[in-house]
Design a protein around this nucleic acid. Structure first.
Lengths: 331, 331
DNA sequence: TTGAAAGCGCTAACAG
DNA sequence: CTGTTAGCGCTTTCAA
């Protein structure tokens, strides 16, 4: 089947290709009867405009690139959902890229993105290197980063202030007399853990104390669970244990129980990134509802603004808030 | 910053644009010193070939479209990961589309895909309508569907035979004297549940019995959990309860426990789609390890074959297998 | 209101 | 080995 083009439609409708172009782009100037004539020809031939050719002529692709970490967490999925939903509204397509291990990886992706001439890019990545961004900005490609607070002329950001989140929570605990807080490391999300650690350290410093219970997972342990099992069996006690992901919270739950510790009576447990699985655990795990879907949606919305608005978009740093969801693992 | 093109490079290197084109495409015929000269010009100007223009000239975009359901399950994420990893190997880009509610949705996506002139498409969707596929095949776009067994000249498929999986498992149970099997409905995955139900019915029929314990979740219940809580409290007993997703298995686990039933002693529990959360539950839930990542990877591999091989690809229907992972919820 | 023609940036014969 | 040129399919002045 010969790929049918605008020329074919023009011939069929007995008009020039310019006219066909006008009707597919909804130009006002076309006379009604010729518009109908062209429409009919389009229907008859099953013509679909070639977006590639349009992209070339228009110097814009109406597609944006999305970079996410390889890990397929529910959280990431929700961000993607949010982003796609609003992208759909503004007729943007999504080119999906994932960062896998290997130093050069990110560079390849960036290179690829530049070549594909997307109109903008959204980056969600724990370990974000500013130098890599610079490449993109050099090519004048508008960027929105999710998760890190940063912005300048071509980059905007949408994020949740985890440091503040944990700071506030820690302050509340300290005021309630719970001063033995512990944070479990998450090897997969180092940057996030750093934010949490910073927040805790600040809270303790502001309270005239020092945060010391950072539970690092030694490299020789294949999983947090394995280490925590040993850790808990040491008859360890903390007032509150804080984990980043649900799976770590569950590991704490299970290992504590196995060690004869009762949660929340002997020790409280809170998970930063809440998930439905937290609610399925027994006891149910308390957590912070992070607006994952909104992170994606707002990021895309911000990007469309940066893409369309003539004058600089003013508010390019958007902080989203969270809600603490108390369940049964905290008192 | 003026967008720099192949012409700029040509002028800078003092050659024709054809030569530049040759070097960026790695043509063998270029003399070494001019190749170097061109390379230098490219570096100096920071030139990146415009993939859109290439696509237009070449009549191929080296991008494929991926359609997945909105739901951001871990399973879907893994499929995407697998697909992207092999897409990367073959230098294909991924255009991601999600099907949200609304009848016309899928049609919009198809329309969009046709316009974007992707080289092929991979579809993973529970509720797949063959008529929609026909649109794509009309435009000669190669398709690979994940999850449904089907194929013809332009469509291939990669799937796991869930009906067989559950059939075999049911037969094993029946032979062991466990004849009271129950299947929990999953409103979000009707087609999948149908496969499972078919398999069970066949197993029972082949054993001279009738499968009757299909646990439908009435619409008025917001979640499986809510209904199961009531169901279990009715002093119900089955030999084995089968669920599709981990969250349903956990709901069974929790509601059974709350009703005073012991798993696996009073009742066994098995989850079709295994996940890490199954291993985190207590007791740990037995499940079938479905090769999610491979589903994506193999689908993409198949598509590249269909895209490059001159002669018809012979094996366009690929069945992947599963492994039963016995844990603590089964005896 | 419509048509002619010049690009958009690149590839691929075809000549030389 | 390299340059010339004709597209790829569409948009957009500029004229008519």
């Amino acid at each position: 089947m010969k790929r049918i083009t605008i020329y074919d439609v023009a011939k069929e409708a007995d008009v020039s290709l310019a006219t066909v172009s006008r009707v597919i782009n909804g130009s006002e100037v076309v006379r009604e009867d010729t518009r109908v004539k062209v429409q009919e020809a389009i229907e008859k031939l099953g013509y679909k405009p070639n977006a590639i050719a349009q992209g070339l002529a228009l110097q814009k692709t109406t597609t944006i690139a999305l970079i996410v970490p390889e890990a397929s967490y529910f959280y990431t999925g929700q961000i993607i959902n949010g982003l796609i939903d609003v992208a759909k509204i503004y007729k943007y397509n999504i080119m999906l890229h994932t960062t896998t291990e290997g130093i050069s990886e990110m560079n390849d992706i960036i290179e690829n993105i530049i070549k594909s001439r997307v109109d903008g890019v959204v980056i969600f990545n724990d370990k974000l290197n500013k130098d890599e961004l610079k490449q993109l900005t050099n090519y004048q490609i508008p960027i929105v980063v999710i998760g890190n607070k940063m912005s300048d002329d071509t980059v905007g950001s949408v994020y949740v202030d985890y440091a503040k989140l944990v700071y506030d929570y820690a302050m509340k605990c300290i005021k309630a007399g719970k001063t033995d807080l512990a944070l479990v490391e998450d090897r997969k999300n180092p940057a996030m853990i750093k934010q949490l650690k910073d927040g805790l350290e600040r809270a303790f410093a502001d309270s005239g104390m020092k945060f010391e219970n950072y539970i690092a997972i030694p490299k020789e342990y294949r999983s947090s669970y394995l280490f925590l099992k040993e850790y808990m069996s040491g008859n360890i006690h903390h007032d509150v244990i804080i984990t980043y992901r649900d799976s770590q919270a569950m590991a704490v739950l299970n290992t504590a129980k196995e060690a004869g510790l009762s949660i929340p009576d002997d020790m409280e447990l809170v998970c930063i990134l809440d998930s439905k699985y937290n609610a399925m655990a027994r006891p149910q795990i308390s957590g912070f509802k992070i607006p994952d879907y909104d992170l994606g949606a707002v990021a895309m919305r911000l990007l469309t603004k940066m893409l369309t608005e003539e004058n600089e978009v003013m508010d390019k740093e958007i902080e989203l808030s969270y809600i603490f969801t108390p369940r049964k693992s905290t008192k």
